[in-house]
Nucleic acid binder design. Structure first.
Lengths: 328, 328
DNA sequence: TTTAACATGTCAACCCGTTGACATGTTTTT
DNA sequence: AAAAACATGTCAACGGGTTGACATGTTAAA
């Protein structure tokens, strides 16, 4: 079986306490003893059992990440940066793909607490989940209000929606339509929609928002976009609430022979490096993905260390940037 | 502090053993007692400590995933399916982004073993790492040989390279060039290159492979592609070893005013749904991502359950598919 | 009425490493 | 020569659950 600390002690000819002292750099130990112990660990292929250590220390250095899915490039990149940042500070990350399903999110939350994670970062979107309120656990939300006490990190979604809409207006669009995800989820996209609608109204335009409900049908998005074009043959500007929707709009528009950007201008949202590589021509609102990740990680570690979260940190809003492409 | 099993016992007016029996469905317990215990757990917000359970049971239901980065859509999707499959079987997943760096991979491997994971799935690419040989731990590799005893799951990379090359030939390309990642890494792309080179030679053509070394420079890929076009103004077919490279080729070609597919045909590799959404027109070799994930997960759980891995399972090769777009 | 099956309790050992208290001996420093 | 620092050992409690052994009492089936 796996060797334990006693096996190492025996093999190195010292006491278990001495091994523990070497492992934790406590008290006085001679270099010779250190070497002997390290040698023994190597020879027996010993890995200190973190379960036992964590159990005693009441600290796991384990973080739970609840996100919709790593399959989406925005989350894939965000999670990458989050894991990176945690890893460099000695934390490990448990990955949970909630798929924006309430039942999954609740199950994961339960699982993470059983596993004694030191904290969680939640970027999933869902209807309100009450569990977060009674929870005693350091947490940071990304782009979502989980409870009064849980700080939120996000980029400036309202500004993003505003900049996108104003950009299309400035480019001369007469009929601008917005496509958005499910309204009932607490997504940041709602603020983008809000901004779009307010800017439109302020400019004396009539806002039209198409809603994409959650669907298992692969072609659902295409169907709705098709419908949008059928119902609005004169549309000349589309603001999509994320780049993948924008990409679908783009290809559907091309199918219909619409010239981009003369007949139709398109702007997306997110600006992931994946989409930038695949569709460098797409105009989009770029989120500061790495900065969001870093802020969330710092804020969580701050809490884990028992430091208070001052009011200004309760709601961190990071700047977005217009990334000008050829689709507008 | 967090309640423990004794607190629950006291609160429910039963013995700790009874609580444990309820928790594990062991022995005889009346419904009334079960209810009392569950009620107490709810009231005290109790989460059974998995560390303690795992420590005793010598089983964590924890799996380590070592992959280059979730930021890449291929890995993002693969990891999504892997996590999904594990989650449905009661396993949790520790995410490690190795960035194809040997030092990171070794550190993660160490960390995972300290954390007593039940097994690991490795999809990272690197030079040979000897640690895998001495390791006593169920493992599955994706697209890479880690050691003699560790089974490998992959899609048919040789066939993929062959199909891609033959496809370009069939479409009438006269000068086909291949672009590939770093040769020194043990990547599946090497088999794609091998197939390309063999098919070319068999057809009496001269194979030309451009190698993309690992680089921190964002524009490095573009630079090499630029160089490729400069050095080969007559190139009329490019087989890229992944879709993101293909996408870059596509946009660089457009910049040079090359008409796709008449002047230049492009074929990529991977066929992730992200790229399919962004670039539906791209011809590519589609990997069965979900099937790869499922096979790897099944195979690992198989090993964890102590069942032998028969010879045919040691090297699972799944079929690829040509996804015909408009770039060829 | 006897015998199972049911229901719950007590107790201790175990999983593995950590830590504080205390002891003992060796060096090194004043 | 005395005091301080260094080096290692022994021992037991602890973190939080699990499990087997054993005891006792109740209820239901034979």
């Amino acid at each position: 079986m796996k060797p334990n600390i006693k096996d190492i002690a025996r093999h190195a000819g010292v006491s278990p306490t001495t091994v523990s002292r070497v492992l934790n750099n406590r008290g006085y130990i001679s270099q010779k003893t250190k070497d002997k112990v390290h040698q023994a660990m190597k020879e027996l292929n010993y890995f200190p059992n973190e379960l036992a250590r964590s159990l005693f220390k009441q600290r796991t250095h384990l973080i739970g990440l609840i996100f919709p899915t790593t399959a989406n490039p925005f989350y894939g990149e965000l999670i990458f940066h989050i894991e990176n940042a945690f890893s460099s500070k000695g934390y490990k990350v448990l990955l949970c793909n909630s798929l924006n399903r309430v039942d999954k999110e609740i199950d994961y939350l339960d699982m993470l607490q059983r596993n004694q994670v030191d904290g969680i970062i939640v970027g999933a979107h869902n209807r309100h989940i009450s569990q977060y309120e009674s929870m005693y656990l350091p947490a940071v939300a990304i782009d979502r209000n989980l409870s009064n006490s849980i700080p939120v990190v996000s980029s400036d979604n309202y500004l993003g929606g505003k900049v996108a809409t104003e950009h299309l207006l400035k480019k001369g669009c007469q009929k601008i339509i917005h496509i958005n995800g499910p309204h009932e989820l607490e997504t940041p996209a709602n603020k983008r929609r809000e901004a779009y609608e307010e800017v439109m109204v302020k400019e004396g335009r009539f806002p039209i928002t198409y809603e994409l409900r959650q669907s298992l049908d692969e072609n659902y998005t295409k169907t709705i976009i098709d419908q949008l074009f059928d119902e609005n043959p004169d549309v000349d500007g589309i603001f999509a609430s994320d780049d993948l929707i924008a990409a679908t709009v783009l290809s559907e528009a091309k199918k219909r022979g619409k010239d981009i950007p003369t007949e139709l201008k398109i702007i997306g949202y997110d600006g992931t490096s994946t989409v930038k590589t695949c569709l460098p021509e797409l105009t989009t609102i770029q989120q500061p993905i790495q900065a969001i990740a870093q802020s969330a990680v710092d804020l969580l570690i701050h809490q884990i260390n028992g430091e208070a979260v001052d009011e200004p940190l309760k709601n961190i809003i990071l700047p977005i940037q217009l990334s000008n492409g050829f689709t507008t």
